[in-house]
């Protein structure tokens, strides 16, 4: 059984999407990468569930490149 929620769960996704883009506004590409990296870590800590995180990482990686290596 999957613990990661992959069905709609966030109220107002359009609003969040707009806020996400707005947060990046005016940043260089490198700064945007930095912001995203921080965001991932902030959310991971807030979530606090290693299993859910592993599933999220796997989902994000799905269909990209070859099989990932863990560790």
């Amino acid at each position: 059984m999957s613990a990661l929620v992959t069905t709609p769960n966030l109220p107002d996704p359009d609003g969040f999407y707009a806020e996400l883009l707005a947060t990046h506004k005016g940043l260089t590409e490198a700064e945007s990468h930095a912001l995203n990296a921080q965001l991932v870590m902030i959310l991971a800590n807030h979530l606090g569930d290693r299993e859910v995180l592993s599933e999220a990482l796997a989902l994000a990686r799905q269909g990209m490149g070859e099989a990932q290596v863990s560790g």
Binding site: H33, A37, Q38, M41, I42
Partner: peptide, 20 residues
Amino acid sequence: RLFRDQVLALAAKAPFARGW
């Protein structure tokens, strides 16, 4: 390097990242 540097940047503003 991106993630390493951002852990350090985050550590200055969020306590959880200090442990990272």
